[in-house]
């Protein structure tokens, strides 16, 4: 199994542990990732607020770079915002007149998009291409007794229905169970984390994350598949706990970090020490100590 890998800007910066753990968990699952040389920003959530054409050209540039590499037809993106931007460009490029409009811009860099690439989210690949059975086979350190709250967020589910129900997602359940852990049942998995409102309208963003953290009480950890969700759910826990006068601190980690723990991968391949929440405490918790 080979995929072209689009890490995106966050995974080179504040979400380095997502990049590291994605690469190592997929390697353990015998998946080959090929880097796309000279990839650039997909436009994040910002480009669409500035210019529609720019918000399509930026991801299209990366699709064009990927097309030039033989040997794979799928681009794997772990970040949900990158995934959606690349997906939008993929969908637009299916239309001939849209495609020529994009190519008119890409021409200045001698690039062309034909529409050959398929954009896949990491969760899509883990749940449909790899599947829970293959994950279970690799588990050497089962996370028995841990209750894990699956958090999907928005943009890997909506607006495109690709691999899961966009409002009542379940794709993470089987993967979590494959690690030996239990799924913490809640109804916040597909509710918005506030996204960039956390920076632009802090009070509004905070009330969304607060509701999610409150609902997660009783779980041992929240698992995410997007750097923006991860940041919003873990970075403000101290302040939120203080203003609610309730301890809402909880480990938050990326899905491949959870898999890495269950696979017994070395710490350097999971990097829980980089998480802003106390994810390290989860790893050192009773389930692991009992072994």
């Amino acid at each position: 199994m080979t995929y072209l890998y689009y890490p995106g800007c966050s995974l080179e910066g504040s979400a380095r542990e997502y990049d590291i753990s994605t690469r190592s968990a997929l390697k353990a699952l015998d998946v080959t990732l090929m880097d796309i040389p000279d990839w650039t920003c997909c436009g994040a959530s910002a480009a669409a607020s500035v210019s529609t054409l720019l918000s399509l050209v930026l991801p299209a540039r990366n699709l064009a770079l990927a097309e030039a590499i033989p040997g794979a037809d799928d681009i794997l993106a772990p970040c949900s915002a990158c995934y959606l931007n690349l997906k939008k460009a993929e969908v637009q490029a299916r239309d001939e007149s849209e495609r020529s409009r994009l190519n008119a811009v890409l021409e200045v860099e001698n690039l062309r998009i034909s529409g050959r690439m398929r954009v896949r989210h990491l969760l899509d690949v883990l749940s449909r291409d790899i599947g829970a059975d293959r994950i279970r086979e690799k588990v050497t350190a089962p996370l028995s007794g841990k209750r894990i709250a699956p958090y999907y967020g928005c943009q890997c589910l909506r607006p495109y229905r690709v691999f899961d129900d966009p409002e009542r997602p379940v794709s993470m359940n089987a993967l979590i169970e494959a690690t030996g852990a239990q799924v913490f049942s809640w109804n916040m998995g597909a509710v918005c984390c506030g996204a960039s409102n956390m920076s632009t309208h802090a009070a509004v963003g905070t009330s969304l994350t607060t509701a999610i953290l409150k609902a997660a009480k009783g779980a041992d950890a929240i698992v995410t598949v997007c750097p923006m969700c991860q940041m919003n759910l873990e970075a403000y826990q101290d302040g939120i706990s203080q203003s609610c006068q309730d301890n809402l601190r909880i480990p938050v980690m990326y899905l491949p970090q959870l898999l890495g723990l269950a696979f017994g991968l070395p710490r350097a391949d999971i990097r829980l020490d980089l998480n802003l929440s106390e994810a390290g405490a989860f790893a050192a918790g009773p389930a692991q100590a009992e072994r």
């Binding site: 800007c9 080179e12 910066g13 504040s14 000279d38 650039t40 920003c41 436009g43 994040a44 959530s45 910002a46 480009a47 607020s49 500035v50 720019l54 930026l58 960039s196 920076s199 632009t200």
Partner: peptide
């Protein structure tokens, strides 16, 4: 917020946080 984000992209291709 959005404009400055895009300025960073124009300069470097990737976002320097």
């Amino acid at each position: 917020f959005y404009r400055n984000f895009m300025e960073s992209v124009r300069r470097h291709g990737r976002v320097r946080e």
